[in-house]
Design a protein around this nucleic acid. Structure first.
Lengths: 221, 221
DNA sequence: TAGTGTATAGATGTATACAAGTACACTTCT
DNA sequence: AGAAGTGTACTTGTATACATCTATACACTA
């Protein structure tokens, strides 16, 4: 969860750096973090390091053992499923609220992103980029700070699983189709319809991800 | 967000204590927290106090100013609305998932709580207690740890607004009626119906709360 | 008088020293 | 040999000292 205006302190820098390492799997699931060693590696004292660690714990990106040690959480399929389910609920809500708040300019912006999404459907990275932009724009229109906050946290965790999924052309076509009818529903101000589309869209992504991952041998201890 | 097993450290104790003071409005919205004074008052050093403060910040129960100071967040109606909307999405999701997972024993438990809820509908505190128990039980059946996590955070914040609402007999009757059809939907395994009922139920609570609060002069600056 | 610069008190951010607790290997006893 | 106890190395938790930054009051200037 990035701050609106990250302050320029060591604790915030090491927070970002640790988060980056966790999401990139540079810090491996199950790995324990030892404060003195990590502080030395990052060239800081334990105090700001601990602040960063505590924050990551409260976001679920690190786990505190009952005994006091701190671990990078393991990956497992149940967690993926839970993450996507909550994400579906949040995106569904934001789509619903976006219907109530979208201005003409907002809708044009969505349609613009949709066009670029369509144009880039052949390129995995670009298509992904515009997909994310579309969801972010809808989130911005909905303007529910709590939904956004939680959505960001969820997205961080999903990021950790992305390394195991494959982004197929079929999936991208499907996502584009979903996006198209979602933008249409928002444009015509149909909140229930938009909510359902957003929900099903994310559930679809969940099932696809679970399929892609199953059997890939997620890291277990 | 309470830990599964709160460790027995000063930082955790002061976290609980500060959280209690924030939710009870003992620490007033807009009030600034000065570390040296607060540490002295709690008879601890600044180090564990800071850990508690950081955690509360990441849960939104304290706010960090760009300049470095830490404040108790102000109360305002927009925030209430956002909180309830997200809560509606989460409870809706949990009701949906509860349908898929509920065992016969789970359903009997729900019906038991419902009966006690009905018996106590004349008493504000008791009725509230069983209402909360019902939602918690459904959350337990759904068994989505992320939904539960976020739901707890949201509930903490809602707690801060409860001081301004009045729990009328009519509201309690309405809530009981909602609970009844919700349990029925879960018992008959109708996920879409249960999801909609839970959503509308919370939205109803939101509107009631907004009505009760408007004009009561929420603390501003 | 309004505005700016500066000094100063006091807050937050960081480093380090110390206390308390945990894990693990080794010894000892049955 | 196996189990239990004990000592040691090391980790986490806390206190404190220090550095840096912020805010406010006051003097000075235009």
């Amino acid at each position: 969860m990035a701050d609106p205006q990250p302050r320029n302190t060591g604790a915030h820098l090491v927070y970002s750096e640790l988060k980056r390492r966790i999401l990139s799997l540079e810090l491996k699931p199950g790995e324990r973090i030892y404060e003195p060693a990590m502080a030395a590696a990052l060239q800081l004292s334990r105090t700001p390091l601990r602040e960063a660690i505590r924050r990551l714990i409260s976001e679920g990106l690190l786990e505190q053992q009952a005994t006091g040690g701190v671990l990078v959480p393991l990956l497992d399929e149940k967690a993926i499923s839970e993450l996507y389910d909550v994400r579906a609920a949040l995106e569904s809500l934001m789509a619903r609220e976006a219907c109530a708040r979208a201005t003409t300019a907002d809708i044009e912006k969505l349609q613009g992103i949709l066009e670029r999404n369509a144009a880039m459907v052949g390129f995995a990275d670009e298509a992904m980029k515009y997909g994310v932009a579309l969801h972010a724009t809808i989130a911005g229109i909905a303007a529910n700070s709590w939904a956004q906050r939680f959505h960001e946290q969820i997205s961080s965790h999903v990021e950790r699983y992305r390394h195991f999924t494959n982004n197929s052309p079929e999936r991208r076509e499907q996502a584009l189709a979903d996006h198209r009818i979602l933008v249409e529903a928002v444009a015509s101000k149909e909140p229930e319809k938009a909510a359902k589309i957003a929900f099903d869209h994310v559930i679809g992504a969940r099932d696809e991800t679970l399929r892609a991952i199953s059997g890939k041998g997620l890291v277990v201890e």
